[in-house]
């Protein structure tokens, strides 16, 4: 099932875009209808997201309602914290091409590059 990860992202974007917690039914109906998607597929996707800690759920009547634990921006900020090498005691989880440098060091780099044209 190649599409499941893609669907997870789609569902997540939907939850980020709405303020109120959403039921499986609501998510299913809000998703684009181009394919015949089963209720159970959406349930599985929400269950996966819950297991990974991306959504929390509460029972409303007979159905579970889901909402994101963290905003999209918070996730990006966390990712970039690792990517830009800002966290001191990082693991080798992530390898960046180069970290962002303070202005004066970056200027020295630029000067060195400019001294050696092609």
């Amino acid at each position: 099932m190649k599409g499941l990860g893609e669907l997870e992202a789609q569902v997540m974007n939907l939850l980020w875009a709405t303020d109120a917690p959403q039921s499986v039914r609501q998510v299913l109906e809000a998703l684009p209808h181009e394919r015949n998607r089963a209720y159970t597929t959406v349930m599985t996707v929400l269950d996966n997201l819950h297991r990974k800690g991306f959504v929390e759920r509460e029972r409303l009547g007979r159905a579970w309602n889901y909402r994101p634990t963290r905003s999209r921006e918070e996730h990006v900020a966390d990712l970039m914290g690792d990517a830009l090498g800002a966290s001191g005691d990082r693991t080798a989880a992530l390898m960046h091409f180069v970290e962002q440098l303070p202005a004066e060091e970056a200027a020295q780099l630029r000067a060195l590059l400019d001294r050696h044209p092609e």
Partner: peptide, 23 residues
């Protein structure tokens, strides 16, 4: 490419872990 990325967009917030290595 290395220099362009090292310059970033908001240099004030940057923290050099190993700036000498980039040089």
């Amino acid at each position: 490419a290395l220099v362009a990325l090292a310059e970033g967009t908001s240099p004030a917030g940057a923290l050099a872990v190993n700036g000498g290595a980039a040089m």
